[in-house]
């Protein structure tokens, strides 16, 4: 675009304007690149964490201020759903399956206790359960993270597992990825950077790696082909991930149910689809498992 018809003042203004815009673009691009390349303990991540901590009181206030609106909206949708007979029956069915799942977990625990003198990674004993309110959600639906109102002052540290309540009881929903003094950021399991070492109940101890495949859907890879896996089998954390490495998640936290199994004729492993117990989008509160034993702290320190 030619500026030959402009006065010198106008040309200087155009130049200044282009320099400012260009400078802002460069700053944004550099920030984006550096942030994507650095680790969670990097400078920009720390700046982001501190900034989030500063606005925590404001987010708490806003969350409480709009709670009546949120509750009213929830009541309205609940009424609509309550009229849906099929949905009601599905809930009843889910409740019945809960008892079955809990029974299977109980049987699994009994078998393990009978075989081993000590468990060592019992998550109910090694972790303090810290209830937390979700005070900030991502302003974009693309990011699977929330901010909670508990931080290091409450014993929450980075890599603390996070549970959510569901019709079938508590289930794993994510992990703390940033921890400030009074607030923390939780990344859900649906975050593509998250993977969990899991085992399937009734599968002869088959260990696999759980990863998200789509919003609300997960797949488990690495389960040996000969392991008996069927639809409806409960899935829980294995306590370690691939290659026998220690996992940040202790053994025995329920995650979801198997919804599909697939493998080829010559495959040595099978791929399992999973439906999680907890949908994090509908939660207002979470429970953080804050490590309190040495073993739990070692797990959280796992790189």
């Amino acid at each position: 675009m030619s500026n030959s018809g402009h006065t010198p003042l106008a040309q200087r203004r155009i130049l200044a304007r282009r320099l400012i815009i260009g400078g802002l673009v460069v700053v944004c691009v550099i920030t984006l690149s550096v942030f994507a390349r650095e680790t969670n303990s990097g400078t920009l991540h720390r700046v982001q964490n501190i900034s989030g901590t500063v606005v925590t009181p404001l987010q708490q206030g806003a969350s409480r201020a709009i709670a009546p609106v949120r509750n009213a909206w929830g009541w309205f949708t609940d009424v609509l759903h309550a009229r849906d007979r099929a949905a009601q029956l599905a809930r009843d069915n889910q409740a019945l399956r809960t008892e079955l799942v809990q029974g299977q977990f109980g049987a699994e625990e009994q078998q393990r206790l009978a075989k081993l003198a000590t468990i060592g990674s019992e998550w109910r004993a090694d972790y303090a359960q810290v209830p937390a309110e979700i005070i900030g959600r991502s302003p974009s639906p693309w990011y699977e993270q929330v901010r909670i109102d508990k931080g290091t002052n409450d014993g929450v540290i980075v890599n603390s597992p996070v549970l959510g309540a569901a019709d079938v009881g508590a289930g794993l929903v994510g992990v703390v990825t940033q921890a400030g003094p009074v607030s923390s950021v939780v990344s859900f399991l649906s975050d593509p950077r998250t993977s969990v070492g899991v085992t399937i109940v009734n599968s002869d101890g088959g260990i696999g790696l759980l990863q998200p495949t789509a919003p609300g859907a997960f797949s488990i890879t690495g389960i040996p082909a000969q392991s008996p896996v069927g639809n409806g089998d409960p899935v829980m954390t294995a306590g370690f991930s691939q290659f026998g490495l220690q996992s940040i998640y202790p053994r025995g936290i329920p995650i979801g149910l198997v919804t599909g199994v697939g493998r080829g004729e010559v495959d040595v492993t099978q791929t399992v689809q999973l439906s999680p117990f907890v949908n994090p989008d509908s939660l207002a509160y979470l429970v953080v498992l804050a490590p309190k034993s040495v073993l739990a702290r070692q797990r959280a320190a796992t790189p």
Binding site: V27, V29, A36, Q48, G52, R137, D191
Partner: peptide, 14 residues
């Protein structure tokens, strides 16, 4: 991006 729990810094700014 600084104040909310999003996974990027710079993208929304741009």
């Amino acid at each position: 991006e600084l104040l909310a729990p999003v996974g990027t810094l710079g993208a929304l700014g741009l």
